[in-house]
Amino acid sequence: MRKNMELPSDPADLQLLLHALVDGELDAATTLALERRLVDDPALAAEHARIAALQTAVRNLPRPGVSDAFQARIAALGVAPQAAARPASAHSAWLGWRAMAASILVTAVLTSGLTQWAMTRNAPDSFAAAVASSHRRSLLAASPVDVASSDRHTVKPWLDARIGLSPAAPDLAKDGFSLLGGRVEVITDKPVPALVYKHREHLITLVAAPQDGRTASIPAGAERAAGGFSLIRWADGAFTYWAISDTDRATLEDFVNRFREAAAAG
């Protein structure tokens, strides 16, 4: 494996690589080189998050029904299934029609205004996927934070100066969760503050998104898995929080409970 693999400079080629990365089609060397590039290139990282979110949204689209009229229109194009050649494959032919219809629908979604509808409809899943991608990139970076400090009076002003908002940033070292600092993340094309805590050998990223219709639609306390990580979501009226880590679920729940208590206490 080459230590410093060169990536293409052409934007179109980089776009193809991002799609291949989301689809899991790159070799280990290219994947590592591209993920290192994402750490240093916020615009490229934002595009990667957008592609991952779109993939999640399209995957969650409802399966379409296929009407007789629609089948007739496809048949008129000269691509009718060969059911007559194999009488026993009627069920397979029907599945073929469904696959073709689904393919056409996905193409229409990707090339029309329905793309925005799909991403909005599945915004919670898209946001979770983007949070998971940002956490994964931070694990590969030389440093998971942009401002390194356990002092909230350093972290909060730093975030405020850059994006105009910051969540509570208590140091929970006495509870086993040390505040390492903070960074600015770009999630679904918007800059949001992120705090980073450490518990033993595990990092916990806490993304705080200002509440709006896209994030507040998830029931409070929702839990899920995202990108192979454990993730817990909750809200406090000002922010919607997403805590994500590769630590065990019980530890992440303990962190969330202690953070909420400390934040409420001021």
Rank of each mutant, 00 (worst) to 15 (best):
A93N: 09
A118R: 11
A75N: 03
A84S: 15
P144S: 15
V186F: 05
L252V: 01
A148F: 12
S138R: 08
A43H: 04
P8M: 08
A128Q: 11
D248M: 13
G221M: 02
R233V: 04
G113P: 01
G182K: 13
R50D: 06
A128K: 13
G227C: 03
D23G: 11
A45Q: 11
A85L: 12
A101R: 01
R36N: 10
L252R: 04
A209E: 05
L206E: 00
A12R: 13
Q211N: 13
H153C: 07
T215A: 02
A226D: 07
P219V: 04
A128L: 08
L34Q: 13
W158H: 10
R183L: 03
S92T: 13
A216M: 11
L252K: 14
D175R: 12
P167L: 03
G213F: 11
A264S: 12
H19K: 13
D13Q: 10
E47Q: 04
A250C: 14
A225N: 14
L95S: 08
D171K: 08
H199M: 04
R183H: 02
S9M: 06
A12L: 09
P11W: 00
P8Y: 02
R37E: 09
P62M: 06
P81C: 02
G221P: 04
D10Y: 08
A238P: 00
R86A: 08
L34W: 02
R37M: 05
A225D: 08
R214F: 00
P42N: 03
